[in-house]
Structure formats: C-alpha cells, structure tokens
Nucleic acid binder design. Sequence first.
DNA 1: CGTGTCATGTAATCAGTTACATGATTCA
DNA 2: TGAATCATGTAACTGATTACATGACACG
Lengths: 193, 193
Amino acid sequence: MAKINKTKYAILGWLTKHDMSGYDLKKIVDKVSGQYWTESNAQLYPMLKELEILGYVESELDQSSGGRKRKIYRILQKGREKLVAWMKTPIDEGCFRDEFLLRLSFSNNIPVEEVIEHFNEHLVGLRRRFKCLQEIKKHIKEEFADRADQPYLLMLYRFREMDIDVRIKWCEDSIAQLEKMHVTSEKGTKRGK
Amino acid sequence: MAKINKTKYAILGWLTKHDMSGYDLKKIVDKVSGQYWTESNAQLYPMLKELEILGYVESELDQSSGGRKRKIYRILQKGREKLVAWMKTPIDEGCFRDEFLLRLSFSNNIPVEEVIEHFNEHLVGLRRRFKCLQEIKKHIKEEFADRADQPYLLMLYRFREMDIDVRIKWCEDSIAQLEKMHVTSEKGTKRGK
DNA sequence: CGTGTCATGTAATCAGTTACATGATTCA
DNA sequence: TGAATCATGTAACTGATTACATGACACG
C-alpha cells in the first residue's frame, strides 16, 4: 500500500477547532502541533483548494481585517465525516527514522570522547525542546480552557514531556557509562580500543 | 537547506561492520536497525552503484555460494572518511510526525469510548514491538559478543525499550483517565460532552 | 517440474521541502 | 519611503515507497 498523504486530515482536524485561513493554519500548526506534526505552505495551500473542490470545506473572502484579502475556510459536514472516517482506519506504523540512533550504531568508528560530545550536543537540543514544550503546555492550559479538545491536547503534551524526559535521562546515563569506559580503557594497558 | 539523503551513510556504516551484498544489507537493516531506521531495495541498489562510482566502496562477484551471482561490497578508506565526516556534522532535527498524537489532538470529534479503543489498539502494537525489541536485544547480546559496536547497539536498544515503555505507561494512564472522565460524564446530568 | 527463496534491479508514483514570486498593508 | 509582516501561492527538486521485472538455483 502506498503511503497516504495525511495533510488532508490534518487540515480537516484543525478546521473542526476554528474557521481559518491557510496562513492561520500554518501558524497554528507550527506553534501547537510543531512538536508532533509539521506541514509546509506548499502542502497546505493546494490541499485547501482540493478540499474545497471535493466539498469538504467552503471558503469565504474576508474583508474585515484591514482590507487584506484572506480566504477563511470552514469545514462542512462532508468534511467532518471524512475526518471521522479516517480516525477509524488503522494507523500505518513503521518506517520511522531516528538519525541519532543510526549514528550511534556506527559510533565504534570514532573515538569515545567524540561520542560523548555528540550525546552532549544532543542533550542541548533536547533540553531546548523540553523548555519549549512546557511553554506551549502552559499556553494550552491558559488559553484553551473549557475547549473540548483541551484534555486531549494536555494528554498529548504530557506524553511529549515524558518522552523527551526519558531521552534526556538516557543520554545522561549513557554519558556516564561512556566516561567510565573511557577511563578504564585509558588505564588498561591498551587492552581497550 | 534541502533534506539530505542518508541512505548513503547508512550503507557505509553497515559496511564498516561486514562486507556485504545488497541483499544482505537489506536483510540486516530490516532485522537489526528496523526499530530505528529503514531502507528499501529501491534506495539500496542504486546507491550501492553510486557509492562504487564515487570510490567509497568496491565490489567483487562471489561465485562461492552455489553459483548464484552476488556482488559483495567492501568499504574503502575514502568511504570510511566520508562516514566519519558525516558523523561530525550536526543532526538535522525536526519534521518528525506522530500520527497517533495527531489523531489524539482531534479526538474531541469522536466519542470517548472510541478514543479508549484507539489507545487499546495502539497498546497492542506497542507491546508487540516491545517483545520484538527484546528478542533482537537478546540476539545482539549473544551473537555480537566482542564486537566493537556491541556496546553502542545495546545502548541504543536500551533506549528503544525505555522509549516504548513510557509510551505504554502513558497509554495505560490515559485509558484510566479517560474511563474516569467517561463515567463522570455519564453520571453527571448531561453536563458532560 | 513447480514453488519458494536468493539476488539484483527499474519504473512509476507519490510525498514533502526549499526557494521563489507576488502583492497588499502597516508602521516607523 | 522603505522594511516588516500579512497572505497566497507555484516550480523545481529530492526523497522514498510500492510494485513489478528478471533470472538462477534449491528442494520436494
């Protein structure tokens, strides 16, 4: 089975939350779902047009905000049904790629000190992402109060936090382990390497 | 910056471990690195040819095993250097997609019972993967003894286990939470929904 | 002698990104 | 008036997969 384009469903899903323009969509996807889902303009705009042709959404020109031409999209019943139908389909797992792990599997080709350095660099990125995550979570707690999707978003963000947290802990453990290895291999009479 | 094709480096990395044919490569990538990296034949074979043209690997026809024509590839010094150089480059993070989380973020469009069901289905897949993971880890422990890459592979598999484990725990917690919500919204005088 | 696996590969297709194009509006 | 941002889009390219094609050998 071919890989299916999910941009369609991502758009429909977001449009169940708010009527929005393509521009709004891009911004909100970047901000709120950037931690688990990304989309580019080159995917969004053509797909919005297609969804309108298919009768899943309708659009309306908005003059209100200053006079800039914005096309506001609204999801139609047919679109909601399409979304719900997709939610019932099994998820295609697999084919996920983790470049850090790939590199680690080849790390016997480089000195241990360098591997430790890579772990440390990785940690920097993880900690930055963790902080960013907490900010968005706070934002969801405050701004999304009483919204029907809030509990699910909080649930999801709790996972992302836990997920990044174990990764951080794993990095720290691994660094400690590698440092021990490094020291012993230095002490040992070149039995290491 | 454009997304870079990493198949090249995955091949070079694997060839530092063993001389192999394309067929072997596909099998070992599926088995050992299937949990964090995938490649298809349509990527592997053309890339092997290209790597040979570039002088990163060399190949030799092998008649020994029965007479079937197998092209065994061996990494060259230039290839090792290329690999090591790549390992020094920063990792391009981002643009990772988690369909389960995407769906969860839209789950206010379906009944709670169904969300719980999806969590349970997800758990089935996770537990299967966890078991599979343990088998490969055992295999690495036994068959990869004294190999220079063993500690890194074990480290990596430990992470995958921890990673899937938190996800399993998160699913279980979330199901409990959703069931509580579900009960209270049934008891409550239709204040729920 | 036919089915399965070994083994190498290609064609067609789809997914997804970057970089660019265009033009209006706001604000310093 | 010039820079920043709002807003919508397209072209060109790369990445990656599926499905197919081909043929030899192994084994019952």
